[in-house]
Amino acid sequence: MVAYDTGPGAAAVTAESVRRTYHLAEPIHAVDGVSLSLGEGSFTAVMGPSGSGKSTLMNLVGCLDTPDEGRIEVDGRSVGELSDTERARLRGTEIGFVFQTFNLMPRLTAVENVRLPMVFHDGVDADRQERAQTLLERVGLGDRLEHEPSELSGGQRQRVALARALANEPTLVLADEPTGNLDTETEAEIMELLVELNEAGATILLVTHERAVAEYADHVVHLLDGKIEDLEHLSDARDVTAREQATEGAGNRRPTGEGEA
């Protein structure tokens, strides 16, 4: 059963009747029977109030957590059936995280931070340094390679985090409130960058509680009490006004936002 589908073609990530229960005083279903399929190259936002299960869903999709019931597949592999080590490897190769608090390694330079996922993933041994530099240049930080996070502005740090998320060419980029700690101007820059990366082929799942941020995506999943309340297809509805306004200048945005990269 796939209740909600965000995009044509092969699915990058699928969730089937996923339930995650926390056993507190009484069992709480943080995620309660969610079925969702993220198409390759899609750009989906997850919205919902606090406690609606956004973070839990993200942890599940990001292979940081495993479902109590149901099944999550990333790149065709069922996350719940993997060992700890296999999940760590899957995270490293198939998931790129972008956090609200940036979460860069404080004592490593920008380029070393971007290299980090490649360092833990021994498979990609092709010139890591060169690839990290290319990625940083792609997010506009070609001149900040050797800066430590403390020497960078918030927006720059988030760009480093974005470059890091792309390091191992992941199936999915998971962005958890990526602009929550940024001012509106920087927010627009980062969101444009996400749109650009999406257009270049990256599958993106964005968690936010701001409508304006969610509207950069093609699809919006509304969560409430651990369940999917609604799935909005912004681009299918050709409801692009809000996005065009916010991203003025991002003129190369393709009109439909469908999955072909």
């Binding site: 990001g62 940081l64 700890d84 080590t85 760590a88 490897r89 995270r91 490293g92 190769t93 995280f97 979460n103 860069l104 390694m105 980090l116 996922p117 833990f120 993933h121 890091r164 390091a167 191992n168």
Partner: peptide, 12 residues
């Protein structure tokens, strides 16, 4: 936590 998120195993 960061290192684990970007793919570090327990062994790493």
């Amino acid at each position: 936590g960061i290192m684990k998120a970007v793919g570090a195993t327990k062994r790493d």
